[in-house]
Design a binder for these strands. Sequence first.
DNA 1: GAATAATATATCAGTTTGATATATTTGTCA
DNA 2: TGACAAATATATCAAACTGATATATTATTC
Lengths: 191, 191
Amino acid sequence: MDLEGASKGMANTKKMDYVLLGLLSHESMTGYEMKKRLDTTLRFFWGGSYGSIYPTLNQLEKEGKVTKEDTSSNGREKISYSITEYGRESLRDWLRKPVEKDELRYETLLKLFFGNETGMEGAKEHIERFEEKCKGELVVLNMFAENLAQYLEDDTHKHYYLTVKFGIKTYESYLEWCKEAKEQIKEWEGK
Amino acid sequence: MDLEGASKGMANTKKMDYVLLGLLSHESMTGYEMKKRLDTTLRFFWGGSYGSIYPTLNQLEKEGKVTKEDTSSNGREKISYSITEYGRESLRDWLRKPVEKDELRYETLLKLFFGNETGMEGAKEHIERFEEKCKGELVVLNMFAENLAQYLEDDTHKHYYLTVKFGIKTYESYLEWCKEAKEQIKEWEGK
DNA sequence: GAATAATATATCAGTTTGATATATTTGTCA
DNA sequence: TGACAAATATATCAAACTGATATATTATTC
């Protein structure tokens, strides 16, 4: 028990290991495909770059948590990764531990917070740009949800569905906030 | 115009500069005090560590954006930082640029997404822990809002107030999602 | 037939975190 | 009064991660 030295008093800070193991627990794929998943399916709550994906995959292979298979065809280099039973144990071990950190880093809020340096006009612009972006994200998320609704017998899709619902709920509340914030600013300006 | 090489086609990726300049635009303070602000006032939308604060302060001084003043008393080392006019220009320049990235990194959602490896029972536990945490955060945010409501003549506090309202709105929607997600799981289990 | 987009792996400098080291002062409680 | 814990304060480092870039092939569009 007690994989990867969590007993040594050090926090389990490297998350990319589990993100990639998680993706591979669904199906075998290439590093490129993992990046695409991070940019589409997971993008509303988690990110990841090539600079983190490829080195982590090599490390996971050395640790025996994934296996490589050269599936190059013609001249196109292609390495397909699969999760091992040991990798799956490691993933489950992590999944059962309590969450260490949920973090929001919204530059929009940062610029809004320091906004009195440039005035309410600047704040309003940032809120409007944020509003437009949220509307776009909501369209995407609603498409995801509609699509998913057809496959809810599958347990994997049930979990996916819950995260999409989270996204929809939060983006809807962002839009409400945008509306109220703009009204509040108008009220302040009126006086 | 066009401070700090944004013209060279490189993204302005270092955010800590502006976080610290922003804090100093409100009032002069020490690095330790800046860390406290990040851990209290800003913690709902931005973080920061000592390992990033102190080196950045030294860099900002070299660039002429802040000035140091030794305010040690008795044996306690203490350096008070103040923003310069050039630093303020640099801050305003950044504030007027469009937001580059708003990012959410919720480990809770990650564990939920991959949760079919450990089953719905594990998912429920993560949701419940998340729910408890959100309730606590909401209490803090509501205290902030109540407190702030007294000082809304001040423009700095108006901006602060809008960000607190954002936090309240989102945490309330998180709680709604927790409720609905638990109901959904129960429904799935019933079948 | 040429240009552009997509597939695919890989690396690197710069940024940030989380932890730790060090030292003093203030507050608590017995 | 004395002992212990908490708060104040600066500083550094390994490890993690991002954003950008390099390289090369195949597929698509015009």
